[in-house]
Amino acid sequence: MAEPVTLLAFGDSLTQGYGLAQNEGFVPRLQRWLTDHGADVKVINGGVSGDTTAGGAARIAWSLTPEVDAVLVALGGNDLLRGIEPAESKANLDAILTEIESRGLPALLVGMEATGNFGDSYKTAFDALYPALAGAHGISLYPQFLQALVDLGDRQEVLRDYLQADATHPNPEGVALIVEAMGPAVLDLVEQAEP
């Protein structure tokens, strides 16, 4: 019998499942979604709350243990909160993707979109770095972690029904929508992997 594919979900508090019961976070929900859609996969939670792209770059090498077959990379939200220079975030993400590539592993990059807090030029530079990196590394790009909530189009509804009280992290209903929307892209990634 073939071994299951081991998928590392490498990210920050959004990946880690901040503020949620263990079975309601992104990774367990994604695991269930993938299994329900016929994937023989084991998803490892490589989310660290508060992690920046620099933190991710510092830990990627030892996170890629021998059993890892594919990697979902979802970092950048904390860089945004701190106003870290987009060029720095890009360099860190590039280092992460280069390390994954050096191991011959397929990856999916999950983007982030800046708010206007740091001005238009910051937003333009930050928003552009994910498509640029996905293109440079020849990997798939999922627009942004919270895409399913953005697509609802009603910020008040999202705040009321799909986010925790901190207005940043999704609640269980929000996670369910996020996984449903991102699932097909992750399934594609799993299908590229060789256990």
Rank of each mutant, 00 (worst) to 15 (best):
E3F: 05
V5M: 12
L7D: 12
L8V: 07
L8M: 06
L8R: 09
F10K: 05
D12K: 08
D12I: 10
S13H: 03
S13D: 13
T15D: 03
Q16M: 15
A21G: 08
A21D: 10
E24A: 03
P28D: 01
P28M: 03
Q31C: 13
W33K: 14
W33I: 12
W33L: 07
A39D: 10
A39S: 10
I44D: 12
I44H: 07
N45Q: 14
G47N: 02
G50K: 15
D51S: 05
T52S: 15
T52E: 06
A54P: 14
A54M: 12
G56H: 09
A57I: 08
A58W: 14
I60M: 15
L64R: 15
T65M: 10
T65W: 04
P66F: 00
V68E: 04
D69L: 03
V71W: 11
V73Q: 09
A74C: 02
A74L: 05
G76A: 07
L80R: 10
R82Q: 01
G83R: 05
G83P: 01
I84R: 04
I84M: 04
P86K: 00
S89C: 00
A91M: 02
D94K: 03
A95K: 10
I100M: 12
E101W: 10
S102Q: 15
R103V: 11
G104I: 05
L105E: 13
L105R: 15
P106G: 12
L108N: 05
V110M: 05
V110Y: 02
G111P: 01
M112R: 00
T115D: 08
G119L: 03
D120A: 08
D120H: 12
T124V: 15
T124N: 07
D127K: 11
D127W: 02
L129W: 01
L133Q: 12
A134N: 03
G135H: 00
A136K: 08
A136T: 08
A136G: 09
S140R: 14
L141F: 06
Y142V: 05
L146Y: 00
L146S: 07
L146F: 06
Q147M: 08
Q147W: 13
V150F: 11
L152Y: 04
D154T: 05
D154H: 13
R155P: 07
R155M: 15
E157R: 11
V158D: 09
L159Y: 15
R160S: 09
Q164H: 06
Q164F: 02
D166S: 09
D166V: 03
T168H: 09
H169D: 01
P170G: 13
N171D: 06
N171A: 14
P172K: 14
E173C: 07
G174N: 00
G174S: 06
V175Y: 09
V175C: 05
A176F: 03
L177I: 08
I178V: 03
I178P: 01
E180L: 08
G183V: 11
G183W: 11
G183T: 06
G183K: 07
A185R: 10
V186T: 05
V186P: 02
L187K: 02
D188I: 01
L189H: 02
E191R: 08
Q192E: 13
E194P: 13
